[in-house]
Amino acid sequence: MIQRKQVIPGDVIAKGTYRYGSNIEKRGDEYIALRVGLAEVGTDGLKLNPLTGPYLPRAEDEVIGKVADINGFGWVVDINSCFDGFLPASFVFGREFSPATHDLSSKFALGDMIGARIESYERSRDPQLSIRGHGYGKIESGEIIKISPTKVPRLIGRRGAMINMISEKTGCDIRVGQNGVVVVNGPPEGLVKTAKAIKIVEEEAHSADLMAKIEAYLGGTEVGK
């Protein structure tokens, strides 16, 4: 059994001895919420799923960013965070990269959307991006939808259950960045339904039967089947 509790900063989630996750502070024998969110009190562990907050970069995260600036050595990518991501030109052009011979904007221009992985991030340096691997690189088309980064886990669902359901029922390809940027491709009516479904997830992320709500909204029919 898990107890769920709606909390705001300063609220006591539980008293006693527990393991606890982020956005929680221990004060004496009390565990205090640091964010507005849903706290889960399990038999031995405490968890706080925040409903609002910024995206803080983590190594290995998959993000979707926008080229915000180009300098001699790479691309500055807006990843909807307090820090811009940096994609070094040598990661794209290889070791023979030279600012004199390679035109960076021929590869990614200002405003281009890029699917990337955060290769490394330490607190003393801006996050470094990489596009090595399948499916990374420039995003050529699609509808851009932005959601609160804290709601990404709910949009994806347990092992992708939520996002797969939306995708199947709308016939759309949905790509979700951990930073809250979503790109959707598909038939026009599917795009509209997907956008609405994502909006419901965003607005009702705190409700327990979210999956059922989305399923009810999308109906039983599957587009194109």
Partner: peptide, 11 residues
């Protein structure tokens, strides 16, 4: 600040 989701000990 709480609306922005900045970690806070209290309001």
């Amino acid at each position: 600040l709480a609306d922005a989701g900045i970690n806070m000990r209290d309001l």
